[in-house]
Structures are given as C-alpha cells and as structure tokens.
Design a binder for these strands. Structure first.
Lengths: 188, 188
DNA sequence: CTTGTCTATGCAACGAGTTGCATAGAAGGA
DNA sequence: TCCTTCTATGCAACTCGTTGCATAGACAAG
C-alpha cells in the first residue's frame, strides 16, 4: 500500500484535491511513484473511510467545485508507523531489458529505433528535472535557507537526476552494442 | 503481460521447468524482472493453453519428476510481435524515496539505519553482478568469441551494474543529507 | 523413524494497478 | 450554437501481483 503513504506525504506537504494529486503524480511525486486519477480517487475514498484523511468541500469560481483533502492525526500516525517499519529494497521492472535480451531471437538492429526513442524520453526527463532543480533549489530565485523538507525533496530529486543520467549512459552502451551486432552480421 | 515475454526469452535461452524458471527469476532474469513461483506456474499453464509453450514430462532420478517447457513457433512469433511493438518507458516505483520525503514529517535521523541497510543490499547485489560478469563475460574462463545472445546478456548486466553503482552513490548522498539534518537540529 | 531441507507443483483469496467508460461545470473559439 | 479544452469526480471490469496454504518425492542427519 505504498500509494497510501505517497498520498499522505503529498498531502502533508500541501493539502489538495484528487485532481491536484493526480497532477502532482505526473510531476514531482511522479519522479518515484505513479498513479492514475482513478486509482487516486478510489484510495482517497478508502482513506477517508479509515479516518486517515479529512475532506472539505471547496466552492470555486470559474471552475467546478472541488474536495480538498488533508491528513488527520491518525493519518500522520499511520505514516510515522510505516516510516519506522523496514521495507524490502525494491526490485527492478525493466521491460526494455527483456526486449534487449529477446532481440537475440529476432533482429537486434530492429531495436535501434526503439532504444533511441527511450533515450530521448530520458533526455527530456533529465532536462525537466534539471529545470526543476534550478527553479526550486539551486537557482537565484530559490529560497536560500532551506528547511528539512526542502533538503529532503532536493536529495530525492538528485536521485531522479542520477537515475536519468545513468539510464542515458546505459542506453548509449546498448546502442553501441546493437550497432556492433548489426555491422558484424545481420541476422546471424 | 511482460512476464509472458520474460518467460519466452528465458525459455528460448534454455528450456526448463517452472521451478528452474523461478530460480532464474531470483538470479539473472531477476536483475530486471521478478516473479514468484506461484505466478510463474499460473502463467505457464495459460501459455500452454494458448499454444505458446510445449510441456514435456521428464522423469528424474534422485528428485521428483518435472515438466520441461519449451517455446513453440507461435510462442516465438508472439515474442517477435512484442519486440516490434513500441513500449512505454517505464516509470519508477521507489518506496524508499517516498520514505525520505516523508521523513520531513517525522524524525529524519530515524531513517539512517534503514537507508544504510538498503545501501548494504545494493552493495551485495553489485558484488554479485560483478562476480557474474567475471565468470561469464570478462574473466579468463569466459567464452572468447561471444555470440549476439551473450553480448546482449552482457549489456543488460552492465545496466544492472550501473544501476547498483548509481543507487549506492545516491544513498551515500541521502545519508550525508540525513546526518546534516541530524547535526543541524534534532526534531526541528 | 522422525525431522528438516531441497526439489517440484499448484490452488485460493486478496490487493494493487490498468483500461474503458461516464458525467458535468466553465470558458473560449468557430 | 456547437465543439473543444480544462477542471473535477467517479464506477465497473479486468488483469497483474502478492500472500497464505497445501501436497509430495527424495535424501540426509539425528
């Protein structure tokens, strides 16, 4: 149930509606956890029923009304309990790696376009992360004395940046390998 | 259904039983995809029903009999079709990052042990991968002229190595941040 | 001869995640 | 007026993944 905890963290950082949460999961939180709005609304309903969250109807002008969620005492306690409980180191789920090994039973060169497309996506993500870092942490407009929350957000963002850089370098390695195989013998 | 494809790739590399597949998913395939034996047996049954795999009963001595699975023509075709179809670049699912951001609402220093434990796991994995690389690819006992399959397996392994190195470096960064917060103000 | 371990296979129940579909208010442009 | 886009919420069906449980053959140790 890590989505519950991701929602608790996000709502503690700032209360918001299901819609706003969904947008955050496309942005900063989405660096390390993803969720669709359908999933978010379902979980929000359950967490309110469990007393972990509070809902407040907010009337808006120029747009539909919304429900703003915030974390209750029990919600905060549930997060603290999870924080103190060890978790299993995550295991990778990397489809592209399956494809690369599978390419041995097909034409390796046919994968080149796909790998290049993935590399471009990771380049874009890296650029997006770096822009966010400059805006929120290292740029001239960033708040100078940063509190614990900001420092922790920054170190997580640095993790995302390191991940994208590593992935791009690895995909370059993959592409070099595929080109070498293509040159050596097509369909061997 | 990427588990299907991971199974197809693994069985093309070498036919085997569900039990053997489960062991492989704890080792080489498990570098980039995980699955329990329960899941594997269920999917194997479905894939046989769909004509993607063949089963052969194999009598053994000194241990229970087993069922050996191998890939059929349609199975190979299904894999090829998947290889030629673009996939979405994977999104991260990183519980520990959620915990790190959540630590802002608890005691950041309380996370230090947990992060150090994770770092040790990643150190162990790195050592395991490096030993495998030496044994299968770069050591004196490795086969010298490597075919396409071996080169592709090697580049995937290099990806696992790069991932573990990056993760260890990032966890060092996280630990430095947590220690800094601890020194600055406990419970601030 | 019982207990434990390794090999080997599987079911059942549940929870997590995805996909498709549906509704509706407000604004702006064709 | 209609069409599209953005905000906002949600249900239903399905698939994928996890957890708990169960069985059983072969061997080794006590």
């Amino acid at each position: 149930m890590a989505l519950d905890h991701a929602i608790l963290v996000s709502l503690l950082e700032r209360p918001g509606s299901g819609y706003e949460l969904a947008r955050r999961f496309e942005r900063s939180i989405g660096y390390f956890w993803t969720a669709t709005h359908q999933q978010i609304y379902r979980v929000l309903g359950r967490m309110v029923a469990d007393g972990l969250l509070l809902v407040r109807e907010v009337e808006q002008q120029g747009r539909p009304d919304k429900k703003e969620y915030s974390v209750t005492g029990p919600g905060r306690a549930a997060l603290a309990a999870w924080l103190h409980k060890p978790i299993e180191p995550e295991s990778l789920r990397h489809d592209l790696a399956v494809k690369i090994r599978g390419a041995a039973f097909d034409d390796p060169a046919a994968l080149i376009d796909e790998v290049e497309r993935h590399r471009q996506v990771h380049r874009d993500r890296l650029a997006h992360y770096l822009a966010g870092e400059l805006r929120d942490f290292t740029g001239p407009d960033a708040p100078a004395p940063q509190d614990a929350g900001q420092q922790l957000q920054h170190v997580v963002l640095r993790g995302g940046i390191a991940y994208e850089r590593m992935t791009i370098a690895w995909l370059d390695d993959v592409l070099a390998t595929l080109h070498r195989l293509e040159a050596a013998g097509p369909g061997a």
